[in-house]
Design a protein around this nucleic acid. Structure first.
Lengths: 146, 146
DNA sequence: CCGCGTTGCTTGACAACATGAAATATCGAG
DNA sequence: CTCGATATTTCATGTTGTCAAGCAACGCGG
């Protein structure tokens, strides 16, 4: 096992923390540019990709369904999202982006440039090796290529 | 410039997003294990490393000082943190972890294993190359080693 | 020394997010 | 049909975040 004091490991952990901090910063900033909070931006992007029941949004956000109610309420109040019935189950409400919501989501996506800009400095080989390393960090089951 | 549709770049961005999500999940989980919120855990860790003025905490958290007041209030109410005077400037209050706070911070640190466990699957060379790639992503000014 | 702008912190009002418990409506199995 | 399970909402509550206002202390120019 890697000792807690391993300088290299510690440095990598710190770098990951820095990436996380930076990602958040830029995400919030991009959302704010469109008068959205981070949570609203996340939901809007989900719904722009595909309409889905409230329950599913809560699962993807890893939060309580009652929380999603409020977030969708606010998006709906601004005309970015709509709630409609599910033809197969009248308990379910399908949330979907309106045309205005799709348009906002599109512009939002363009602002979410994190790592596209920084990544531009990396060659294709470097991006490939970064991809492979990140994959293995996320899924330790993946063995190193022999 | 890297085209928006570049599959490799898109994949790396998605992986980074996955790392960010996972980091947060594990951080909140570790904090909750000690009955702390994420923000409280962050502040406690800062203060366990070194006492500092409220103002500095706000800078490191990138939030308003008035917000820090509340977070430190809650930590202080639980005896994990103390406010003391700054001998050099009577406007300043130095927040510091109490012995109980140091102890909690210590156990918290042990729970914050993100990327230490996953990283164990990477060889020293791989960790080095991950470190170098992350450094360049965070600071595009750094040229590729020739 | 004295005023006065600046700085550090707190307070108050308010919005968003988050959880949990309870209410409502619907589903589906028996 | 009945009854437990599911999907959503509502309500109460707590934490995080902002902003504006206030207060105490600092420190500089005169």
């Amino acid at each position: 096992m890697v000792p807690r004091t391993d300088a290299l490991t510690r440095e990598v952990v710190d770098l990951i923390a820095a990436v996380v901090a930076r990602y958040h910063e830029e995400y919030e900033e991009a959302a704010a540019k469109h008068a959205l909070t981070g949570a609203q931006a996340k939901v809007l992007r989900l719904l722009a990709a595909e309409p889905m029941p409230m329950r599913r949004i809560a699962q993807l956000l890893k939060c309580e369904p009652s929380n999603v109610t409020g977030i969708v309420d606010r998006l709906e109040a601004r005309g970015l999202v709509e709630r409609g019935p599910d033809p197969d189950d009248r308990r379910v409400k399908l949330a979907a982006a309106t045309p205005a919501g799709l348009e906002t989501a599109g512009r939002l996506g363009e602002s979410l440039d994190f790592a596209r800009e920084p990544l531009a400095g990396l060659s294709a080989e470097e991006r490939t090796s970064l991809r492979d390393l990140l994959r293995r960090v996320l899924d330790p089951g993946t063995a190193a290529p022999r």
